[in-house]
Design a protein around this nucleic acid. Structure first.
Lengths: 325, 325
DNA sequence: TTGAAAGCGCTAACAG
DNA sequence: CTGTTAGCGCTTTCAA
């Protein structure tokens, strides 16, 4: 039993392939109602399923979007991926997912693969935004950078600096003076902005003698290790650059016999679902994930004439870990 | 600047399209080394990129695999998706990801979309395995069911019953007699197997008077709500059907002022990374996620002549939440 | 309103 | 070893 094609339907309906195409696509030419019914019946009867590959070959669009994240196992990216897929689905698009593992070569290789697949556009969290942008530009493929983005490219991000400032100020408001930070990887643009916000708030408020800061990956273990490095100096509070790290930090605090928030206040960044269920619940700077995803997908489907450079607002979700009731 | 095609390369190399195809695909016909070099140079110079769509149209294979999970935001599925993508990438395949939201209609719609895209195969966690299998069968598309699967279909699962038995027995070994369970959704095959294992262990060991059990979704909140329902009866231990639920349970216990494992022992199922970093760390039945993913991908790429029905072993990872150490 | 036919870019016979 | 050519299944002019 071989594939049912448009020709089979045409034959069964006693009409031409063109007409079948017109009814399947509701255009671009009108079809007499009676003919339409015959075609519809033939489709039903033959079990015809349009071939997206052939369609893409002639039509140009694959109705497919690519998504490249560093690590889908990270809840933030997982939630983001879910949101992107939902937005894409609502727009009848399908999503190709790939992990770059935070590696530049891998990322570029993935991009190459996606380009060969002729995706209509890509949402990317890039480690090599300039190179990626160049590849995409010359392949005339739409893209939206999340986080780090080259000038002139569409990007969607959040106010990392402002969020970090708000988080730190909140801690200062609690009366803490020694506020350490577990930052992201050195060189990461997003991580640096969060660090800058923390530093700005700290120094402008004169809250600390020495700025205890460590670079760590955005992982549970990064948070754990960072905490071990920082806790010796007995900070009163720690700002973690991501929820994953904060959870690692919570575990480290427990291992050291430190009670959060009594012995150590914690505040973090992301606002993933996990942050709400940690013990204690994490006060966190919440990113508008669904909004970012919706905006990204929209931008790929019907791009603004000018590059979009969205910096979305974040909100501080106050829970228990900072010391608030 | 329009797309560079094989014809352009052929022209630049002063040869035919066929030869270009032969060198790009290293076959099926041999090409003289000198010609090959000329073609390679022409490819380089023109910036030619093979068109996967056209390739798929003629060749039959899209080199694309589909993955349908209920909810990518769930860490277990996120880790699984990551593992599937890695395995697929190693095999030069690309992954289309979609969330069914645990809804049958959505799942079937997704499958239809995937079929139109002519994916080579699909890994699916299905809520309607029979219908899904029928669709896939008649579209002659390879598939592997994870978890619930119809008879005669390839499936990969873990020993849910055995894992639950082991977990429960471990709890009994601690001397607990009142061991409650937060199970998965009613009717879920995997969830039922875990329940059966718990029940079997409990009753055969005569460990409990009444079997406190509640059905809950595999979510943080499911675990939280389930815990609130169960904790009133003051069980000595609770077996949660998933890590997500266990984390919700941990939060509920904290809210009730119960210390884990001192006042309440907890054991769970999945073995996601999050379980290791919870406070206290969760004793859990670990699923071999990478192995499942690798097996699934392999099965799609080079299927066994007979349907594969793998039931992988799980391992109990003993940590703090059960009261050990 | 409908049909014939020309491709979309590529692979794989088939023929030199 | 290399070139010619017939499709793959579909959309869309262009004619009728």
């Amino acid at each position: 039993m071989t594939r049912v094609t448009q020709a089979d339907v045409a034959r069964a309906a006693g009409t031409s392939m063109a007409v079948v195409s017109y009814v399947v696509n509701r255009g671009p030419r009108p079809v007499a109602e009676e003919t339409r019914q015959r075609v519809l019946a033939a489709i039903e009867q033959t079990g015809y399923r349009p071939d997206g590959v052939a369609r893409a070959l002639v039509g140009g669009s694959t109705m497919t979007l690519g998504l490249i994240v560093p690590d889908i196992a990270n809840e933030f990216f997982a939630e983001l991926a879910g949101a992107v897929e939902h937005a894409a689905r609502a727009a009848k698009r399908t999503v190709l997912l790939a992990n770059s593992d935070g590696d530049v070569q891998t990322e570029l290789g993935l991009l190459e693969t996606f380009l060969q697949r002729r995706i209509d556009g890509v949402v990317i969290i890039s480690k090599a935004p300039i190179t990626a942008a160049r590849m995409l530009e010359q392949a005339e493929t739409r893209r939206v950078f999340l986080g780090a983005a080259p000038a002139g490219e569409s990007s969607i991000g959040v106010d990392n600096f402002g969020g970090a400032v708000a988080a730190t100020i909140h801690l200062v408001g609690h009366g803490f003076e020694r506020i350490a930070m577990i930052g992201g990887p050195a060189g990461d643009e997003v991580a640096e902005a969060r660090r800058a916000g923390w530093q700005h708030a700290i120094t402008s408020l004169g809250a600390v003698d020495d700025l205890a800061f460590v670079h760590q990956p955005f992982t549970f273990d990064g948070g754990y290790v960072g905490a071990r490095q920082l806790l010796g100096a007995r900070p009163q509070a720690v700002f973690a650059a991501s929820d994953r790290q904060a959870i690692g930090l919570l575990r480290a605090a427990a291992d050291e016999g430190l009670s959060v928030p009594d012995d150590l206040a914690v505040i973090t960044f992301d606002g993933s679902a996990a942050s709400a269920y940690a013990v204690p619940s994490l006060t966190t700077v919440q990113q508008p994930i669904a909004e970012m995803a919706a905006l990204a997908v929209q931008q790929l489907i019907e791009p603004d004439p000018q590059p979009l450079n969205a910096v979305l607002e974040v909100g501080l979700v106050v829970r228990r870990s900072c010391g608030c009731s």
